[in-house]
């Protein structure tokens, strides 16, 4: 069987984002970040560096965090994509979002969608993380404002809220 090359012209893709199927027509060179923001209007996922150096573009792919800026959209077919827009349940904020508000887990807020997405994924894998586990799990998200102590407090508080809701 020979390789089935698609492109360089636009190809139709079906992307499963926040539980919904989206059809787009894009060239293979497009990153998931550019498709989310420019084709689908999902601008909650931020473009910081575009080079895998800041974490502002963090999304969840099949349960694991990834940088949308270095992910080709064409390689996301058949994968479960969760963006910051898919974290709240309707109008009900996710406990991580509520904790970031309550504990001032940000200053300018630019890095916050990425921070929240990383924290949600971290707590899904490790519901009761130690301080070291929080630091390691959040290590791929830079905050230029340096809100780190408040970010760690927010994640810890969210873990506690989620444990109470479970129990």
């Amino acid at each position: 069987m020979a390789l089935n090359f698609r492109g360089p012209d636009a190809v139709p893709l079906t992307l499963q984002i926040n539980g919904e199927a989206h059809q787009v027509l894009v060239e293979p060179r497009r990153t998931l970040l550019s498709v989310l923001r420019e084709e689908l209007g999902l601008t909650g996922t931020k473009r910081g560096c575009g080079q895998g150096q800041c974490g502002a573009c963090t999304v969840i792919l099949d349960g694991e965090t990834a940088y949308a800026c270095l992910t080709l959209a064409i390689e996301c077919e058949g994968r479960e994509i969760v963006t910051i827009e898919g974290i709240a349940q309707g109008d009900a904020l996710h406990p991580v979002q509520a904790a970031f508000i309550q504990h001032d887990g940000y200053q300018c807020g630019f890095c916050t969608p990425g921070q929240v997405v990383s924290a949600v994924a971290l707590l899904a894998h490790t519901p009761q993380p130690s301080e070291a586990e929080i630091r390691a799990g959040m290590a791929g998200n830079i905050c230029r404002c340096g809100a780190y102590p408040a970010i760690i407090r927010s994640v810890r508080a969210a873990a506690e809220t989620m444990a109470e809701q479970e129990g």
Binding site: M1, N4, F5, R6, G7, P8, P28, R29, L72, I74
Partner: peptide, 17 residues
């Protein structure tokens, strides 16, 4: 930062790659 145009294929066997 726009990438140049390229074609893309998913590999199914090492021989074809």
């Amino acid at each position: 930062m726009t990438i140049h145009r390229f074609a893309h294929a998913d590999a199914a066997s090492l021989q074809e790659v």
